[in-house]
């Protein structure tokens, strides 16, 4: 089932994608800035940020315990592990086994989220607690949607365009906005306690720990973009050809995300429930369509 050369291939892909991930964030920021008639920083800025953070000293709260220090490492490891599983599933024809692997990948993402949320509470700051509470709140509504969408993908397969997978793709797109802290749900660009979710949770982090968390967030974004690419660009994953067009697919998705971020306003926290419930019903419709075989 898992020949050793597949494992080597996937490991290579993981390393490449982790290196590639900050570029995607930089690219999205560049598009947003250009559309706002601003020049903005270079697309390589996320790399500079990571390098700068690694070279700095780190400040740790007096209240913090080992959880605070361990969390970034666990978050990073879990997101790499999830990426590994997602790429492993990509090799298969999206059947029973791949469904199991994908579900496991979501559970692994949950591990990182759990520890980051704990770290938010660890520093005895109310910002951290606020962020943890909101993050767990949003993710517990996003998780069922992602699972139903994975079910749909594995019921229909990703060999050609289908109504079911397209619908599920829209559901997953909304989940992606929530999980990668994009605008209608969260905002990466602001530090205001009314709006922060992810940023509030990691507010106490600095130095190398923050670098690791940022790298992990970029990688998490890539995971969701890969998921999206299966739904919107079916039958284009395998072989050398798949690798050639891969940056193109990611660029199109990044453009779409940037446009969404620019054209909608951030929602109130409790409106997110409506947003995600809507997404859930789309996913459910997709599963009905998949049941009908369309």
């Amino acid at each position: 089932m898992m020949p050793i050369n597949n494992l080597i291939l996937v490991t290579g892909q993981v390393i490449l994608l982790v290196l590639f991930a900050p570029l995607v964030s930089g690219f999205i920021r560049k598009i947003k800035n250009n559309l706002r008639m601003r020049k903005g920083p270079s697309v390589l800025q996320p790399y500079y940020n990571v390098q700068k953070l690694i070279s700095k000293d780190e400040v740790i709260s007096r209240h913090a315990s080992w959880i605070f220090l361990a969390a970034p490492v666990i978050v990073f490891a879990s997101i790499i592990c999830a990426l590994f599983l997602v790429l492993l599933a990509q090799l298969g024809p999206f059947g029973n086994n791949d469904m199991a692997i994908l579900i496991a990948a979501f559970f692994v993402l949950g591990l990182g989220r759990f520890f980051l949320a704990l770290a938010g509470l660890d520093t005895a700051s109310s910002f951290g607690g606020m962020g943890s509470s909101r993050e767990m709140f949003i993710s517990s509504f996003a998780e069922p949607i992602a699972f139903v969408a994975v079910f749909v993908l594995c019921m229909s397969g990703a060999d050609t365009f289908r109504i079911s997978t397209l619908l599920a793709g829209f559901a997953i797109l909304m989940v992606t906005l929530a999980e990668t802290s994009r605008v209608p749900v969260d905002n990466q660009e602001t530090h205001l306690e009314l709006t922060m979710v992810h940023e509030a949770m990691v507010l106490e982090y600095s130095g190398r720990s923050l670098a690791l968390i940022e790298l992990a967030s970029h990688t998490k974004q890539i995971i969701f973009f890969i998921l999206l690419s299966w739904y919107f660009f079916p039958s284009m994953t395998g072989g050398v050809w798949g690798w050639v067009i891969f940056p193109g697919k990611i660029a199109i998705i990044s453009l779409a995300i940037a446009l969404i971020e620019l054209s909608v306003a951030k929602m109130r926290l409790f409106r997110v429930v409506d947003f995600l419930s809507f997404s859930f019903f789309i996913a459910l419709l997709a599963s009905i369509a998949a049941g009908l075989g369309i």
């Binding site: 949950g110 989220r113 767990m136 509504f141 998780e143 079910f151 599963s287």
Partner: peptide, 19 residues
């Protein structure tokens, strides 16, 4: 599918509860 969604929601809420 609905049962699976319910279980997914449960596990998300359980994680929140134990955080």
């Amino acid at each position: 599918v609905l049962s699976a969604a319910a279980l997914a929601m449960t596990s998300g809420l359980a994680a929140a509860c134990f955080v």
